[in-house]
Amino acid sequence: MSLQVFFLLAFGGAAVWFGIVVFLTHSMVRSALALLFSQTAIGAMFLVMQAEFLGVLQIMMMATEMSIMAIFMVMFMMDPGGLGEMDMKHQRKTSLAAGLVAFFGALAVAVFADWGPLATDIPDAGEQVRLLGFELLGRSMLIFESAGLTILTAMIAATALAVQARERGAKA
């Protein structure tokens, strides 16, 4: 077993475990932070797979994103220190079945598909960043720009949604 496999297993296991914790714990803040650590472990998996830029980016973005998620959880659920023991699940059996089917389906594909030989020749991290830059601002510029535009639109739309009705002039 190569070192890479070992670390992939370790970080992957951590990611899955934290992912499960998200839905096990009763505390909203713990849920959000478990998701954060799951995403961080995924970032670490990227690093193991030598995608340095993406890994670091994932680790950075998720810390902020999930903290924001935590505060929203507290806002909406008024989490009383995680002691609420609230039950917030429905259609348990269906979901569990769907989850298992999804897992085994994807697993079967992963295991039984013929992936062919693995690539061994990887551009180093600096080269990757350079190539990615050329890709983003070259051939894929349009896609990249539309992604930027999308996120801007989403920001504006989300703000508009969140602004109170009276500020839009219609106090119903």
Binding site: E52, F53, M60, A63, A125, G126, Q128, V129
Partner: peptide
Amino acid sequence: LATGALFFNAALAYVLVALIM
């Protein structure tokens, strides 16, 4: 690191997490 400047941000993003915790 080839992504050093970005890594700096990534590591310090966890200051926020630590303070919230």
